[in-house]
Computed example of a mutant assay.
Amino acid sequence: MNKLVLIAALIFMASGCKTSPFTGKQTLNFVSNDELFPMSFQQYNQFLSENNVVTGTAESRMVKQVGEKIAVAAERYLTALGYPGYLKDYKWEYNLVKDDAANAFCMPGGKIVVYTGILPITGDEAGLAMVMGHELAHALANHGAQRMSASQVQQGVGLAGGLALGDSKSGQLFNQYYGTASQVGLMLPFSRKHESEADEIGTIIAAIAGYDPAEAAELWKRMQAKSGGQEPMEIMSTHPSSASRIQALTALVPRAKQEAAKFGVTTFKS
């Protein structure tokens, strides 16, 4: 019985693997864009209807201008990677929302929101480009669909393990510890990996759009200063620590500039 459950789980997981255009590696993804995008667009429109969208200001125009530059750069990058039609179903939209939270997000399919609360930290157009590049990268890499898929696997393994082990002592221990163990050992590292991928992809795309990739590390220095060093332990967090991000983003600068140079971009806005 246990072997049959394991074989079924492996077949299910293998059938849901897709290749990332950025890494060339297989990713866990059971959710198609045809399923995900309409739901995402509907949720985005609902969010806008329930929040204070800022229009007609210099800041709102900057959000749209930066978003458009980043989207063009993303298309150029993906075409160069051999995925010219990758963005055909994306419906780009960029909105500034009045909210004190230092946050931004991009829904699957290219629907972006920037909160006014993050603008004092981004500081200028280049800092905003790093934030929007990061959020856009989550959508390009299908991180939302991957998280949904990983959650399905987590739940499926938990159910299969509980059924296979039954009410035995092993089954009781499994049910007691599986949730925490899978969260700390699987889901949180999975999320941190996505954040690191989005940092890398987003910074490269922002560089192709003409923004200085060195600004990404500077942005996170400001984020770190705002937090006052009050961050959860990295192992218990969905995100890498600010220190880890600053180190990785600093090391990424030469590569990002090399990638941008392939598109004729050798001077950068900072």
Rank of each mutant, 00 (worst) to 15 (best):
G179A: 15
L252I: 11
V63E: 04
G161D: 10
E59V: 09
A102F: 00
A126P: 06
L219I: 08
L48M: 15
G162V: 11
S20Y: 06
I201W: 04
V114E: 01
S227Q: 14
S60T: 08
K193N: 14
D89G: 01
T116N: 01
Y44I: 11
K64I: 08
N45P: 01
L159F: 07
T23M: 04
T55P: 00
A206V: 07
Q247Y: 10
A8H: 14
E200P: 00
V53L: 07
N2L: 15
V265T: 09
E218S: 08
A102K: 00
G117C: 04
T27E: 14
Q176N: 14
K226A: 14
A71V: 11
C17G: 08
G110V: 01
T122K: 02
S49K: 13
L219C: 06
K18A: 08
L140N: 07
G158H: 12
Q230T: 10
G117F: 01
V113P: 01
A160F: 11
Q26P: 00
Q26C: 01
Q152I: 12
F41E: 15
K193A: 15
L252N: 05
S151C: 03
R61Y: 02
S227E: 14
L136H: 09
L173G: 10
I235Y: 02
V113L: 05
D89Y: 02
Q152L: 13
A150Y: 06
L4M: 13
A209D: 08
L78V: 04
Y86V: 01
K269T: 15
M1N: 12
L119F: 00
A150H: 07
